[in-house]
Design a protein around this nucleic acid. Sequence first.
DNA 1: ATAGTTGCAAAAGTTTTGCATTGTA
DNA 2: TACAATGCAAAACTTTTGCAACTAT
Lengths: 150, 150
Amino acid sequence: MQTMTDLIHAPTPAEDPGIQATDRLARAGLRPTRQRVALAKLLFDGRDRHVTAEQLHGQASTADMRVSLATVYNTLHQFTEAGLLREVVVEAGRSYFDTNVSDHHHFFVEGSGHLLDIPGHALEVSGLPEAPAGTRVARVDVIIRLSAGG
Amino acid sequence: MQTMTDLIHAPTPAEDPGIQATDRLARAGLRPTRQRVALAKLLFDGRDRHVTAEQLHGQASTADMRVSLATVYNTLHQFTEAGLLREVVVEAGRSYFDTNVSDHHHFFVEGSGHLLDIPGHALEVSGLPEAPAGTRVARVDVIIRLSAGG
DNA sequence: ATAGTTGCAAAAGTTTTGCATTGTA
DNA sequence: TACAATGCAAAACTTTTGCAACTAT
């Protein structure tokens, strides 16, 4: 899958996906176990990705990695808690995980189930009401739902 | 649950929850079956409500109505398609249904799972990017996620 | 070595179908 | 009487735990 990138510049120690993944995990305070490193390699290939647990599990299987779906779920949540991923909820009964953890919002194409990033600065939310007493704003999510057809 | 309302003004034909519910269903092109009328009475009691399927099923059971959870799900989706409800997705693996179908956004209190309406006009989203080719904007959802703690 | 951590099987939820039954015209 | 539409049991999902096994120090 990351063949393109691999061909464009040969991996140097700093860019080698293996080392990069291991490093990234270490910095996030997560033990670089085999499954985690493998999944991190798939996830952090340089592109921004939006994956469901099932998709990632499928990709792992295709790449001849033996990981159970449960582990994929657990790993995705651990990565999310560690700040390596961002969970995006747009559809009932399905979670997406976004490798782009910077402040930004999303297009969601209903039907196809595709999720697209919108750069954070392009879109602004004004007139935010005060948070109810005893709470504080953790995050503001904007989801622009799209349907097929001009 | 709607005891207060019942006591404050005795139901006139126009306000009687039974007639109101039946009417509402008829107008939406849905057959006023026993289960639908019963659920509509619970849902459209005058207040804005945010319920999960499970909550509504529990409320129905408490009120001695015999409805299966599957029927509650199906009914909620039928109501949503008919425009009587709005589905709000904020948490993985749980759908909320909102009796307020006007244009508005939501506070979501993480932890407690409470959902609160934000009037539509108070909040504005500017700088909306163009919809990708071949798609059109179906809806813009803004969710302000709150956590406990001032 | 070993103690905390992980990974997965099994369980727990949530949601969706298939079809006998119902209710309406 | 017919026949489209309903309501629910059962099935199909997605997601979460509990604990044996592992592995990084």
